[in-house]
Write a protein that binds this DNA or RNA. Sequence first.
DNA 1: CCGATTTTTGACCCGCAGTTCAAGAAAGGA
DNA 2: TCCTTTCTTGAACTGCGGGTCAAAAATCGG
Lengths: 191, 191
Amino acid sequence: MGRPKNFEPDVVIAQAMETFWTNGYAGTSPADLAEATGVAKGSLYHSFGSKRELFDKALALYDRVGSEVTEEFLSRPGTAKERIRAYLVFLVDMDLNGPVRRGCLAANTALELGGRDEEATRAVRRTEERTIELLAARIEQGRRDGDVSPEIDARAQAQFLMNTIVGLRVMARTFDGPTLYRIIDTALAGL
Amino acid sequence: MGRPKNFEPDVVIAQAMETFWTNGYAGTSPADLAEATGVAKGSLYHSFGSKRELFDKALALYDRVGSEVTEEFLSRPGTAKERIRAYLVFLVDMDLNGPVRRGCLAANTALELGGRDEEATRAVRRTEERTIELLAARIEQGRRDGDVSPEIDARAQAQFLMNTIVGLRVMARTFDGPTLYRIIDTALAGL
DNA sequence: CCGATTTTTGACCCGCAGTTCAAGAAAGGA
DNA sequence: TCCTTTCTTGAACTGCGGGTCAAAAATCGG
């Protein structure tokens, strides 16, 4: 009972995520969120409590969607190296083709709030860990399939790739496509 | 003539740099700068014009100091791989040992202002380019010395290393020392 | 010592960020 | 229909961020 919500909370969270992604946490005002979602400020506070709590929901959504995309990319047919390259290229292209280069929400948050904000730091780390797991699993599978050398330490390699990804998404702010693609090639030379 | 300045502009810029480095551009208020420098707000505005202009000076200083340190590290005796490893370890340790993990001012700025702020983006890119040059030159020298394979493309390798550095300085916000050192090892395996 | 020049400084201003709130609107139940 | 509950919304409030200013304080040349 009571008056029904006249918006889909999940949709609003998704719109908020986009806004935070583009403008950063501090760079997004309640007014921005109201405009982006079409929901009045007061109503947002009523439903989500605070800007901060809404941001947490946005981070969680980003984590879910991100790991789905990663899984999807890595599970398609091909060698480990091929699939991982396709994934990295996809990430870079996402930045290059967008109207604004916004990088990775998790990495952006790590830089903006990392160390200063307990909860945000944990959320970011969770997202990174999960990606590392997925990469490590795919490399492991490559070893079983025989397209990855048994010398390779899957987890170490996955952590290194995670580092490369984070780097790329920051470098995408300042460097051009060819340079970024060349970095991908060099990073994957060891696989 | 006129009343002499009560402070060393270079010292104030250095103190401002530290503050921006720790708290970010948006996260640093004029009041913070006044407290960090011991100079009253009005006086800072009189001398530097605006928060933004002071930040530009801070970025320029960071660039100068950074390239000196890089040069210093790479020019010591040893193979290219040894010297570059020492440099990467130094950067990581800097973050790990500090009271707060603040990463790299240039990378932080790339994320905070990159794409949105013309001047800042250029400054960051300048710093990154310079580092790449220094790394490429050292690798080139390694090739001449015979400790680097002639197969290696010095510039591509340098860009890749720059990417690794940027990644490390973001990952330092969320990951522990051993993981970061392992990433360095993996990244340098190809040299 | 006086005026010209340059700094110093806290007080002051404007606007906006983040939040709260009171009044009203839309449901369902008795 | 009226009451309760839940949601909606713009108005209003508080605090602070970035910046300006007027008056006082150093310094120097004449």
